[in-house]
Design a protein around this nucleic acid. Sequence first.
DNA 1: GCGACAG
DNA 2: ATCTTGTCGC
Length: 304
Amino acid sequence: MDLYSYFYSLVKQIPPGRVSTYGALARALGDIRASRACGVMLSQNPDAPRIPCHRVVMSDGSLGGFTHPEGVKKKIERLRAEGVSVENGKVVDFHEILFEDFHTDYPLKALREEQEKLKERVKLEDDFSLGAVGGVDVSYSGRWAYGVLVIMSSPFEVDMVVRGKFRVDFPYIPTYLAFREEPIISSLLSRFDRELILLVDGNGIMHPRFFGLASHIGVKNDVPTIGVAKSQLLGSVVEDKVFVNSRHVGYFVKSGRKRGIYVSPGHRVSLETSLEIVRQYLKHKNPEPLRLAHIYANEFRRSG
DNA sequence: GCGACAG
DNA sequence: ATCTTGTCGC
Ligand SMILES: [Mg+2]
């Protein structure tokens, strides 16, 4: 699913003389949670003003951002040329000229259904051999992605580093992270032959559909995975356990100087074992394979 | 108005 | 995540 292309074709549906909103476009994609991603994709508009990003404003009729050497002034100018006035930073007659009637198939709805389907294949029992432990992370510059897989044969011995540069066709949207990063990480994994347990920068079953990035990668590649997130996507923390809809899905682990990390099994690993393995590799805030993958991915992006 | 929103 | 075009609920 090339969500960038799909999104730009939605934006082209907004007629001259009308405006739409980031939220309306997000709902046309299939989830209001994508509203921020709509702003990000517009900021990366490859063909303005043919893709009329100047016709997208905030839900209260105020202008929102505009990436241009002349700034938001250019947005006002392009709207005015189409007969849309802006006064006191707000679109005049906003509710009258608001366009929300997008022709769409709601692609994010289909992706939620894909998550629900693949979820049936998640196994939350230990099913791996004690071999290498890997960590993956991805760094970005615009639509370029720099992925790194670090393999450690034991704590704390780096065995191998795999790197790859990719073009992404999906933005970051909360709860849809896998559709952005899974293709990148699967490609890196295909270049490593041996057995491993993979630590992933994101959640396993700590997810509204119990199918986060780590589970997605695990199921698609038939690899044991553990999700390790730096912040809380959802759920409630009681002592060191995290619950989603009263189901125990993972742990909050105090680590580093302040706060901590959120650990949840992805695939082929039990709740308890996911915690045990992460703890074995904990020297800083993040377990070592992830900490190194993060550092190497940033170096890769900045240098080549 | 402020915080929440995996990365 | 990067250096940045949001929305909703409390
Ligand atoms: Mg990351």
